[in-house]
Computed example of a mutant assay.
Amino acid sequence: MSEIPACPSRAIVVDAPGEHRLVERELPEPGPVDVRVRVAAAGICLSDRELYDGHRAPGYVRYPVVPGHEWSGTVEAVGAGVDPALVGRPCVAEGFRSCGTCERCRYGETSLCTAGYAETGFTEPGAFADHLVVPARLLHPLPDGADLRAAALLEPAAVVAAAVRAGRPRPGERIAVVGAGTLGLLAVQWLAASSPAELAVVDPRTERAAQALDFGADRALSPAEADGVSGRYDLVVETAGAPTTAASSCLLPRRGGRVVLTGMFAAGATGIDPVHLSLSQLELRSVFGASSAAWADAVRAFSAGLLDPAPLVTHAFPLERFGEALALVGGGAPGTGKVLLHP
């Protein structure tokens, strides 16, 4: 009797900057401690655009690679050492492949793992594919019937959760969010739940600022208008990663205020004035990715209906139209929000 061939599974492979192909491969099999997920939706973000354009730092990408670090799906198969009850569960999973044994991981700071950088979609196969294999220990199951289209944005939501943990908002505080992209709008939605006395968003794009008001902000400012309210805010959460926003965000808080930087800055960004930083006694934190605890916060908020990323999604494409989808990301076209791939 002839052997039945394995069910094919498609994936987008970026062989080198600017070069991609849609391949058909054998169905990936989970290892003993892994799960195989049928991908439902995968978000494309500026980091994926940087990967494709060759602008990501060499230590943070490994070509050839299947991109895709923002995703949701359903567990389809499990390894021999994994609970079979997970099969059929909707889920997301942490991107950082932390070791779980180094000192930072033992402290719960899994995004600071000292074993070396490894992340789904950058150094490990990602979710721009029909199927994805990930370690079961990184999995976060979702409630039955969860909106998997919206759940694909739980990765940026986890980054926002990490920023909120670092910023420690308290009821009655004045809070500003710099940037109204995906991270910024999720931050506005999350921070609105902390009962601030004022929640402002700073962005030069009027349509994005208007959307921030729908997400819970009560004030929208242009960068020029923000210059006129320096020293006003208790907490500032920067999400834009633009060349000047790290420095300008540190001018917005009151003396003794708090600033959290979540944007990904490129070399040459404007530096923060150390004199202002020290004289103002600012507390400054940065966020890169999200710890397991921040992921748990994001999944819990989403599952409870406190966080709804669905309105951010404006476009969805099949894998075959990856090039078209990628071109939209970072293009600045009005009306373009989060772009998804649907395998």
Rank of each mutant, 00 (worst) to 15 (best):
G330T: 12
A333H: 08
H140A: 11
A192M: 10
R10M: 10
P90F: 00
G184H: 04
L326S: 03
A166P: 05
L284P: 05
G228A: 14
A118I: 08
G337Y: 05
G121W: 02
G263C: 07
L27S: 13
P67T: 05
V259T: 08
L282R: 03
G31A: 06
A6G: 15
E119T: 04
V159W: 00
P84H: 08
P334I: 11
C250I: 03
A163Q: 10
L340Q: 08
L279Y: 14
V236T: 04
V177F: 05
G330E: 12
A293L: 14
A42C: 14
G88S: 03
E320S: 09
V66E: 04
D34I: 04
R258H: 03
T245W: 07
G68N: 13
D234C: 04
D203S: 11
A240L: 09
A163G: 08
A40K: 05
E103K: 09
D218F: 07
D308S: 05
R219F: 03
A290L: 07
A217D: 03
L326M: 09
A6I: 15
A293I: 04
V13D: 08
P30H: 06
A193N: 02
G289C: 10
A226T: 02
S222E: 13
Y107S: 07
T182V: 15
R137I: 01
S292N: 13
A325G: 07
A151S: 03
F128Y: 12
Q281W: 14
F317I: 09
E103C: 00
A247E: 06
E320F: 00
F322E: 02
T114M: 06
D297Y: 01
P309A: 04
G181V: 04
C105P: 02
R49I: 13
A224C: 06
P318E: 11
P32Y: 03
A80E: 13
L86M: 01
Y63P: 01
H55Q: 12
P171S: 09
R137W: 06
S278E: 15
L328Q: 12
V23N: 12
L148E: 10
I44L: 15
Y233K: 07
A304M: 14
